[in-house]
Nucleic acid binder design. Structure first.
Length: 864
RNA sequence: GCCUGGGUGGCGGAACAGGUAGACGCAAGGGACUUAAAAUCCCUUGAGGCUUGACCUCGUGCGGGUUCAAUUCCCGCCCCAGGCACCA
């Protein structure tokens, strides 16, 4: 054994060993219980960051632990390899997205291997490979056949200079995040998945995911946004040609129908220009529509954005009061929600109230708060709380809650409307006018319309010889070689669809593909998916709480409906780990600084370029833009993978944010060195030792023996039940601390063997966390197989029994003394001893004892 | 505004089921080894008090409550972080 711990020799040695022995390669084994552990796969952006390191370290501990527990563990890794950054980088470097992506993958794979993660690399996949997206296209065709995929016209965020659609997240304050161009709403024909068909099911099952953090399921519930209300038809005074004779609204407050005094339509509502026609309002209305079109949805949604609108010149009729209601088009009415039309009740809705005051519209109170009398003229804000119905005809005097039901019934009876449920969730728009994505396998034929590609023509290959265009416009539409095809139905010349799919589509089923990643007959081999799925434990960042996780749940339902899988939920348990954070540093001249652009420590930090003092900012999520990042390569180089892993696990429990600390890393490294030295010193003594009788041990060894079992118990439950690796590690540290105090002495009464047992315990318990380190020490103990193949130790309850107990004495709940007593002492004896406690007596003195509470084997509380 | 988390020493964090608050680590201080430093090892370390003890008082964001006993349960508030947000 080397005297000094040198990760640079230890780590490559064991990584090589694991590779050569194919230790992590798995296959379906019906004899063994399976465990599918999955971490969210990375986008190959260039190199891994601390967030990845943390995420994958947590997963690796669980995977290794479960393997030692005897499970058949599937632990795969791959690449979420399509997406815009590859295109942008390719344009900037004058290369190709594929080149860029595959180079990054190669580099990042190397980094992950250096971390010693226990992946079955034989299952590695990259979503940009035709072997992968081929089956995504196949599924798209199936979904198209079933009506689950469709095309419709909708408004999207469009950046003219980038020539593409932007996701809502890519619009910052109304401007394009890349070029700063004003984003506009553009009407485009786009492909959609009918996720709204599953809104109710996705919602219901949120309560049947006990292994998920509640915060994620509530976020999903809110996103789905179910609300129960009614659809109500308001007859139009003048019906434009070719339109229905009424406007339908969705409301959750049908009880306030008698107070509806005007109507608001979204600017995008198709009726708006029609209604304005011939009223003299055409110009005002069309100007308003144009102006609103320039505002993207998120700007329009900003708080305190002033409510404004324009009268269309038309009226509709309140079906209850028969009052004429002016129809406005207003910026706060959203086309995407409900029907795009709002019945406005200014007395009981703040937005309507603001609008009514601004445009001087009537305000009629129909719900009166208890013990108060509101008046439409004098009220200063809307009243949205419960109350008693007034000004409401036959519903007068009811509670507004009862009126909701009664009015809904009335509407239904008179064919004016009906109860309905509305969801905030919208269908999933998957079209991207981008090159680096999976082509949507559809064909446009002049005669047959839109036709799906033939299955045998799949994959529809993304052409590799594309010349990317400046600004990001997709080259596909102008590539004859790609677009020219023949109609799969009639054989005439036709044109290929040139939209590609949103990259969230790839990540919605990759976990199924891992079950049989090289399978060529379908998306996945049924027996393999039946064996491995669902994922037992999924681990990733909370930033995917809604989109990725909801889409994956949706896709699993689609596969279930198509009869391809037996389950509905893909992820049984979910762990969302916290962010990795670090303080920011900034120089007055050079703004944010990377850690290596700063000299000195503490108060003395200065900028390397100008020497000015550096301002230390708050602790924030590591990000390139704030430059508060630590490159994992530096850690690997300086301390090695095991120390890096240990730090990530020890500094905070996984679900909480992790604050970077150089000293914390040092501390972890010191601990490993301490353990190493302990082994080095005692290696010879314990090498051949084996077999001892716990009953024969001397006092010192009995303590070590008991502590070992206590530690096994604590570490096992910390990992198994809570993933609290920080406390698991501190438990092992305690055991090591205890052992450090031992004088080896002579090998009598099983001393050497007991020490060996404790040392083996330390190695086994640490092995999921610092695997290279553990393998090396395991080997020095004389073992010839990987420590991973050793069974996880189990504690012996009888070894935990102490012969003396520490009992705490309280007087009136305050700690006043303590004593030890033989473990077999009964409650009466403990009580007697407590009442005799010297210090406690000082507080009892003179006062009558009212009550004595004895908590078994722990505490006595004397009440005086 | 709504929905989630979370507020514990100088710091990261422990306390599993109401029962010794502060495990473990970091930092700091003192000491040993060394010509010296690094590394390592040992000791001290929530605040305050004095009678320096097997001592006392206070102490888990703030204010109440339940209980023999509350970081833990209940009610009201304050602050921080994240998510959603003109959703009718």
């Amino acid at each position: 054994m080397e005297e000094r711990y040198d990760p640079k020799t230890v780590e490559p040695k064991w990584q090589g060993f694991w590779d050569e022995t194919r230790l992590f390669a798995v296959s379906e084994d019906p004899e063994k219980e399976k465990y599918y552990l999955l971490e969210m796969f990375p986008y190959p952006s260039g190199k891994i960051h601390m967030g990845h390191v943390r995420n994958y370290t947590i997963g690796d501990v669980v995977a290794r632990y479960k393997k030692m527990r005897g499970f058949n563990v599937l632990h795969p890794m791959g690449w979420d390899a399509f997406g815009m950054p590859a295109e942008n980088a390719a344009i900037a470097n004058d290369s190709h997205p594929a080149t860029w992506t595959y180079e990054n993958i190669d580099y990042m794979r190397g980094q992950l291997k250096k971390m010693g993660f226990s992946y079955d690399w034989e299952r590695e996949l990259a979503t940009c490979r035709p072997e992968y997206y081929r089956w995504e296209q196949w599924l798209f065709l199936k979904m198209y056949e079933k009506g689950m995929a469709y095309r419709k016209e909708s408004y999207v965020n469009w950046c003219e200079s980038c020539q593409t659609v932007l996701a809502n997240e890519q619009v910052e304050a109304g401007l394009c995040w890349r070029c700063g161009e004003q984003v506009r709403q553009k009407k485009l024909r786009q492909w959609f998945f009918r996720i709204t068909d599953y809104a109710e099911d996705l919602l219901q099952y949120c309560d049947q995911l006990p292994g998920w953090p509640e915060k994620v399921t509530t976020m999903q519930k809110n996103w789905i946004g179910k609300s129960i209300g009614a659809k109500i038809r308001f007859p139009l005074e003048q019906v434009p040609d070719g339109y229905e004779d009424a406007i339908t609204v969705f409301t959750t407050r049908q009880d306030t129908l008698f107070g509806a005094t005007f109507m608001c339509l979204a600017p995008e509502h198709p009726l708006v220009p029609e209604l304005a026609r011939g009223t003299g309002q055409e110009k005002a209305v069309s100007e308003f529509i144009d102006r609103m079109g320039l505002q993207d949805r998120s700007t329009r949604g900003l708080e305190k954005y002033e409510k404004e609108g324009v009268f269309t010149g038309a009226y509709c009729i309140n079906p209850m009061t028969k009052a004429r209601m002016p129809i406005y088009t207003a910026n706060f009415a959203l086309m995407e929600y409900g029907t795009g039309a709002v019945m406005s009740v200014p007395a009981h809705d703040q937005r309507d109230f603001d609008f009514a005051r601004k445009y001087d519209l009537p305000i009629i109170v129909v719900v009166q708060p208890p013990g108060e009398k509101l008046d439409g003229k004098s009220m200063t804000q809307a009243y949205a709380e419960p109350g008693i119905m007034v000004n409401s005809g036959e519903f007068e005097g009811m509670s507004n809650e009862d009126a909701k039901e009664a009015i809904a019934d009335h509407l239904k009876k008179n064919d004016l409307g009906e109860k309905t449920v509305n969801y905030r969730l919208r269908d999933w728009g998957i079209s991207r006018q981008r090159y680096w994505g999976a082509p949507i396998p559809m064909v446009h034929c002049d005669d047959c319309g839109i036709v799906g590609a033939r299955e045998e023509d799949l994959p529809i290959l993304l052409p590799e010889d594309a010349d990317l265009l400046e600004g990001g416009k997709s080259p596909l539409p102008s590539m004859e070689s790609f677009t020219r095809t023949e109609c799969p139905q009639c054989g005439k010349p036709a044109r290929r669809e040139t939209d590609t799919m949103d990259t969230f589509v790839e990540s919605s089923w990759y976990f199924e593909r891992y079950c049989s990643p090289r399978y060529e007959e379908g998306m996945f081999k049924k027996e393999a998916a039946d064996y491995w799925m669902p994922v037992d434990q999924y681990i990733g960042g909370v930033e995917h709480a809604i989109l990725h996780l909801l889409y994956s749940r949706y896709f699993t339902r689609v596969l279930n409906d198509l009869g391809l899988v037996k389950y509905k939920e893909p992820f049984t348990r979910l762990l969302t780990q916290g962010m990795v954070c670090k303080e920011t540093m900034a120089c007055p001249d050079h703004k944010f600084l990377f850690p290596d652009e700063v000299q000195g420590t503490g108060e003395e930090r200065t900028c390397v370029r100008c020497g000015k003092p550096v301002a230390v900012g708050r602790v924030e999520k590591m990000s390139k833009s704030k430059k508060n990042v630590i490159d994992p390569n530096i850690l690997l180089d300086q301390y090695g993978a095991d120390t890096t892993r240990l730090f990530c696990l020890f500094a905070a429990p996984p679900e909480r944010d992790l604050e970077w600390s150089e000293q914390g890393v040092e501390g972890g490294h010191r601990f490993l060195n301490r353990v190493w030295r302990l082994f080095y010193n005692w290696c010879d003594l314990i090498k051949g030792a084996s077999g001892f009788d716990p009953k024969e041990l001397d006092e010192e060894m009995t303590k070590v023996y008991r502590k070992s079992h206590e530690t096994i118990k604590r570490v096992s439950t910390d990992i198994e039940e809570r993933f609290h690796f920080n406390t698991a590690i501190s438990a092992v540290m305690e055991l090591v601390n205890e052992m450090q105090g031992i004088e080896p002495g002579k090998d009598v009464r099983g001393r050497a063997a007991c020490i060996r047992f404790a040392m083996e315990t330390v190695v086994l318990l640490l092995s999921p966390m610092v695997p290279h380190f553990a393998e090396e020490l395991w080997q020095t103990l004389g073992h010839h197989h990987s420590v991973l193949l050793a069974p996880w130790p189990t504690h012996d309850e009888s070894a935990l029994v102490k012969d003396e107990l520490l009992i705490v004495v309280q007087v009136n709940g305050k700690l006043r003394g303590r004593f030890t007593i033989p473990a077999e002492a009964d409650d009466a004896a403990i009580k007697e001893r407590a009442l005799a406690d010297e210090n406690a007596l000082k507080f009892i003195e003179g006062k009558p004892i009212k009550k004595v509470i004895v908590v078994k084997k722990k505490l006595v509380n004397i009440v005086v």
